[in-house]
């Protein structure tokens, strides 16, 4: 059997659901090999019990290098306690062990609660600049063209829906967790099957919304007879977009992990790269339109 790749779509407050999911996969004969920002990579093994810990560190940040003395120190503590480090994905740091005696990495539910809340807040800080940018573009289009029916508004709506969904889910968890902590001193149990199904439906819904909108725009704006060309051009555009995304993410990952710059330098690098890729995509679109209408 070859390796298996699975998309990571768990929110920070679903860290326990991810842990339970990984343990269930090990019992089915799939152990986690490595994890990236978007995918988990599993390799086959004999079905057996593997314990996992999915942790969020103190003051989590997706910009911080994983090679800082603090993070290395954290991993060293865990290694000494019998936990092997598998890697990180966003805010999640994943450890595993086959020893039944190893003490759980995080034994204070209140600290865990604080870390999850810090990570959720970090997510909103990540989304905020994008929401502001899209809102500004939508407003500019409204004053210029007198309509809010633009691609920016649609992106804004998609993003607002994503924020509402994740925000609502996080707020519900926060209230439930606070009540559970106060009553029993533990965090609520997460059913990974339910969480995964919910997040799959949600991701599929967002992608379907984007696809329907794209097809609608193509059908409405492209003159008849040119639909096939437009569809091809759009497919090429998507390919370039994802290739660029992949390229930038690899370069940024390399800079973050091998050069171990400070968090602020990484923030500048990330946003600089985002700006550069936006400019590059605009240039590609502009060149395409010049060629298409010439």
């Amino acid at each position: 059997m070859s390796k298996k790749y699975v998309m990571v779509n768990f929110f920070p407050h679903e860290a326990d659901a991810l842990k339970n999911y990984l343990e269930a996969r090990a019992l089915e004969g799939w152990k986690l090999d490595k994890l990236g920002n978007f995918f988990l990579c599993f390799s086959p093994c004999t079905p057996h019990t593997i314990r996992y810990c999915v942790e969020i560190m103190e003051r989590p940040s997706v910009y911080a290098s994983n090679q800082t003395p603090e993070r290395k120190g954290y991993r060293e503590f865990c290694r000494e306690a019998g936990w092997d480090y598998l890697g990180c994905s966003g805010y999640f740091h994943v450890f595993c062990t086959e020893s039944p005696e190893a003490i759980e990495v995080e034994t204070d539910p209140e600290l865990r609660f604080q870390h999850i809340v810090q990570a959720e807040n970090g997510n909103y800080k990540l989304m905020l600049p994008l929401v502001i940018l899209l809102a500004a573009l939508s407003l500019a289009a409204f004053f210029e063209k007198g309509t809010l029916l633009t691609s920016n508004t649609f992106c804004l709506l998609l993003m607002a829906a994503a924020c509402l969904y994740s925000g609502g889910s996080s707020l519900r968890w926060k209230n439930k967790a606070a009540a559970s902590l106060a009553a029993d001193g533990v965090l609520p149990h997460s059913d990974w099957k339910r969480v995964r199904l919910k997040n799959r439906i949600w991701t599929f819904g967002l992608l379907a919304g984007a696809a329907i909108y794209t097809i609608w725009i193509l059908a409405a704006t492209v003159p008849s007879g040119y639909t096939a060309y437009a569809a091809l051009a759009f497919a090429v555009y998507l390919l370039i977009f994802f290739l660029l995304m992949f390229l930038f993410s690899r370069v940024l990952f390399w800079l973050r992990e091998k050069r171990a710059y400070s968090k602020n330098t990484n923030i500048a690098l990330y946003w600089g790269a985002a700006l550069a890729s936006a400019v590059l995509i605009c240039v590609v679109i502009f060149v395409f339109f010049c060629w298409f209408f010439s």
């Binding site: 810990c53 942790e55 560190m57 103190e58 120190g73 954290y74 503590f77 865990c78 000494e80 306690a81 936990w83 003490i103 759980e104 990495v105 995080e106 034994t107 204070d108 600290l111 870390h115």
Partner: peptide, 11 residues
């Protein structure tokens, strides 16, 4: 009382 390495490190 047993303290996990992550909790110990944070505290």
């Amino acid at each position: 009382v047993r303290i996990g390495p992550g909790t110990l490190y944070t505290l």
